[in-house]
Design a binder for these strands. Structure first.
Length: 312
DNA sequence: AAATGTTTCAACCGCGTGTAG
DNA sequence: TCTACACGCGGTTGAAACATT
């Protein structure tokens, strides 16, 4: 038994919107302000449409501040960089691009930018890649099965490599489209010492891995079940002030998360093993992009959901 | 000019999440 | 605490537009 449909699909109009329908919806929103209940809107506005369809039409097309097409190089870089970092979190990516919608960004990536990114070259940076599996809103599972390490993950090269050091304040900027816990990765890091007390962050949107959650983990010197939400960065910081510098996936981690973890877990920054460990964690935090690049690069299929093998 | 293949993008679908009752 | 409902999201589809042969 499936979920009840949000509306009677047989009795509502579907397909492309007519100009009259657009005008009805536009004038309704104009006169009533923020829509409180999209399901009830069609009836009130005199539209024979599903409420979800109305919402989509408004958000993706009729909103006055929408931009269509004409993506700039800078926007390309933002999309590439964020996609590399957080994967297909289109609503988050779109929230960093004023006037762009998640649907638009998604279409743009799938039809143009992905090819462009691929064409600019793929190179390997990471020695080890461990897909962490289910991430984000759907089906996050800490009980996922560890799998053997796949081939090294290629990375797209969308922009000149640079480092990024967002200020702590930037971590508190608002992103309303995602909840804390998104882009989260559960992992165990058995070689690191138990983490010290963690710094306080402005809010929960960006929080470092949590301290050991089990007595056992603390007792044997490991820590477990780290969760991180990384769905928020300021665009100005992303584009590096002048807009001519951009973080890449690895650099994003090395530039921001790396030092954070080094500070928190006293990893020697100069040691190659520490670098390796950071790379492993990076791959765990931001797995989606690698997975896609990977598939596109005709490598073996990425592993199914699972904890980072070397971290378990 | 016609046929065929490819690309684009608006719209749909179904599921996870948040929340009010 | 549970349930029902609406919202929001990401993946997918399909028709139209465009390019190529």
């Amino acid at each position: 038994m499936g979920r009840a449909p949000c509306c009677d699909k047989a009795s509502v109009k579907r397909g492309p919107w007519a100009p009259e329908e657009d005008e009805l919806l536009r004038s309704y929103v104009r006169s009533h302000g923020a829509v409180g209940n999209w399901i009830a809107l069609p009836h009130k506005a005199g539209l024979n449409r599903c409420g979800k369809s109305c919402r989509l039409r408004w958000l993706n097309y009729l909103r006055p501040d929408i931009k269509h097409g004409g993506y700039t190089e800078q926007e390309d870089m933002v999309i590439c960089s964020l996609y590399n970092s957080i994967g297909s979190r289109w609503s988050i990516i779109a929230s960093k691009l004023p006037g762009r919608t998640d649907n638009d960004v998604k279409n743009y990536w799938n039809t143009k930018l992905k090819k462009k990114a691929m064409g600019m070259g793929i190179h390997q940076q990471q020695q080890h890649y461990h897909h962490q599996g289910a991430v984000g809103r759907r089906g996050a599972s800490a009980s996922a099965i560890a799998t053997p390490p796949p081939p090294p993950a290629p990375q797209s090269q969308c922009a000149p490599s640079s480092m990024m050091h967002p200020s702590p304040a930037s971590a508190s900027s608002a992103v309303t489209t995602a909840s804390a816990g998104d882009v989260a990765c559960s992992f165990m890091y058995s070689d690191a010492p138990a983490p010290p007390a963690l710094p306080h962050y402005h809010n929960a949107e960006f929080s470092p891995p949590v301290q050991p959650t089990t007595q056992a983990a603390a007792a044997n010197g490991s820590w477990a079940s780290g969760m991180m939400a990384f769905d928020d960065m300021f665009l100005p910081e992303l584009i590096g002030g002048g807009g001519d510098q951009f973080p890449l996936q690895g650099d994003l981690f090395a530039g921001y998360l790396g030092p954070l973890l080094q500070d928190n877990y006293r990893l020697p920054s100069s040691s190659s093993s520490a670098q390796l460990q950071l790379q492993e964690l990076s791959a765990c935090y931001f797995p989606n992009a690698q997975a896609e690049m990977w598939a596109a690069a005709d490598h073996a299929k990425p592993p199914p959901a699972g904890l980072c093998p070397s971290l378990t």
